[in-house]
Simulated scan of single mutants.
Amino acid sequence: MERYIWTLVVLLSLSLCGCDDNNEKMYSGDSTLYLNLSSTELDSVVCSFVETTENKIIVNIPVEITGYAAPVDRSFGLRVNEANTTAIAGKHYEALQDQYILEKNAYSMNVPVTILYSGDLDSLTMRLELELVPGGDFAAGIPSRQKVMLSISNQVPTVVYWSYIYASYFGKYSKVKHRYMLSELKLKKLEDSIEYYYSADRKLLEAYGLHMNNFFAEHQIYDEYGKLIEPWIE
């Protein structure tokens, strides 16, 4: 009986030591950073003001680690690669922080980047390339996932069939009106094809047109030429 009890004590001691070793392993080893981007975002992330009337857009950059979590907060950097950037700090985006904190026990976080509207985005597309900064608490990570290019603009595509599909319901075309239509009607885009001309829901377009007519009647909004957008339905 004494031999059995002694054996059990030894086994429990070894088990507890094994747990301590596993805990130490969990928080040991080099960790690296990478940007957890989708396959389409690896080329560029589109930041467009076309679908909003706000003057700011928050873009969350997903950062993840390889390796183990840590029992303490850790810091890393995200900087602008000036060589590949045409966007201007304070005009097209808010300056980044010097450091960002990955909280203890965390494997990932989103870094918020604030994109700003500027009038030149109506005709130009600005580039903002961001890259992770190795060193300190993290080693260099996967080379192909260290950078991300943000493509910033407010350009709306030309609506070739506006006069055939939309003019009867929304009046004269303007880029500003186009942008507000997308925002107010919660649309991703305006359909623009001969097929849509024949298949469009006319009653829905009529309802949309009345909504936008009332919207512009209640708000003083000027088009890209400085002309007031007036109601078109009497």
Rank of each mutant, 00 (worst) to 15 (best):
V45L: 05
L96Q: 14
M212S: 05
M181Q: 04
E195D: 15
L204R: 04
Q99G: 00
K186F: 03
V59G: 03
D122T: 05
S31I: 00
V148F: 02
D21M: 00
E218L: 02
Y166M: 05
G18Y: 02
R145H: 04
Q99A: 03
A140W: 07
T114C: 13
Y107W: 11
T114Y: 10
T158D: 04
V148T: 03
I165F: 08
S123A: 02
E2D: 08
T125F: 05
T85K: 06
Y198T: 12
S153P: 02
L116K: 10
I233Q: 10
S163H: 14
W6M: 09
A95S: 15
N60W: 13
Q155I: 15
L116V: 15
L128D: 12
S199Y: 07
N110V: 08
F49T: 02
Y208R: 15
I221K: 06
E218T: 04
S144M: 07
S13A: 13
K175S: 14
V148Y: 01
N84L: 12
K186D: 13
A69H: 06
L96E: 03
P157C: 06
E103C: 04
S153W: 08
V10A: 09
P112Y: 04
K147F: 12
A70H: 13
L204H: 01
Y197H: 13
N154G: 15
G119S: 12
E51R: 07
K175L: 09
P143K: 11
D120T: 11
S183T: 04
L204Y: 06
S144N: 09
A106N: 14
G119K: 13
S193I: 10
E64T: 07
L116T: 14
K172I: 06
L14C: 13
F215M: 07
L37G: 02
K203H: 08
Y208C: 12
D21F: 05
K147H: 12
L11Y: 01
E103G: 02
P71T: 00
V46F: 02
L124I: 14
A95T: 14
H178V: 07
M126A: 11
V80G: 06
Q97W: 08
E129M: 13
H211D: 05
S13F: 05
C19M: 14
Q99P: 00
I58P: 01
I233H: 10
G18D: 01
E64D: 13
S38Y: 11
D43L: 15
L130V: 00
L16I: 05
N81L: 14
I88Y: 09
I233W: 09
Q97C: 08
L8S: 08
Y164L: 11
N81F: 11
M149Q: 07
C47R: 11
Y68D: 09
Y197W: 14
S168F: 08
P112A: 09
D223L: 12
K177L: 01
N154W: 10
K227H: 08
N84V: 08
S144K: 07
I65K: 00
Y100P: 04
A217F: 03
E64H: 02
Y164K: 12
N81H: 06
I152H: 01
S163R: 13
K203I: 11
D137F: 05
V156R: 01
I142G: 06
V133L: 01
N55G: 10
V45D: 02
E41T: 00
E195W: 05
P231A: 10
L116G: 13
L150D: 07
I115P: 09
T52A: 06
I101P: 05
D98K: 15
V159T: 03
